[in-house]
């Protein structure tokens, strides 16, 4: 009988380490964007649903009135961007956890990134190229300041 040979513990298995700081920034981003999102979303909900006439006030004129103000455009754009990046990053972590085969992983990642890009691009287009007073529209549906603009 002989004792089992002791193996030097130093040579160690390397895990596939890629971009060294990426995960730390992702973690940080999630906390910070989460905080900002809480503020943005609660302001959004209060202004749209609680103040004024509440939910019944929301129509084209209401939205147009808000976006005539650059401040609301910035706030909404920020909310769109952060919500998509925050949610997208969360989905990325879930895919990393649950999709084990390479094929599944790249397929799901592809769909995720594509949908993020599409939503962010479409959303930004709507926010930044929005016209509150389209010509030929029914005047009763438009915000009050359009009368000066269109006449």
């Amino acid at each position: 009988m002989s004792a089992p040979e002791l193996i030097d513990p130093k040579p160690r298995i390397r895990s596939g380490r890629t971009r060294r700081k990426a995960e730390r920034w992702s973690w940080m981003f999630m906390r910070l964007s989460g905080l900002v999102l809480v503020l943005l979303i609660f302001t959004h909900l209060t202004v749209n649903l609680v103040l004024g006439e509440g939910v019944s006030q929301i129509d084209f004129a209401f939205v147009a009135g808000k976006w005539a103000d650059w401040w609301w455009q910035v706030a909404d754009f920020l909310m769109l961007l952060l919500a998509m990046l925050h949610g997208g990053n969360g989905m990325r972590l879930l895919i990393n956890d649950y999709a084990h085969s390479k094929a599944w992983r790249s397929a799901l990642m592809g769909v995720l990134h594509l949908s993020m890009v599409v939503v962010i691009v479409l959303g930004s287009l709507v926010i930044w190229t929005f016209d509150p007073c389209p010509v030929d529209a029914d005047m009763s549906l438009l915000p009050s300041f359009c009368e000066d603009v269109l006449q």
Binding site: G16, R20, A22, E23, R24, W27
Partner: peptide, 12 residues
């Protein structure tokens, strides 16, 4: 710390 900063490390 560098090892735990890895993809499979503390951030999971």
């Amino acid at each position: 710390l560098e090892i735990l900063n890895d993809k499979a490390g503390v951030w999971k």
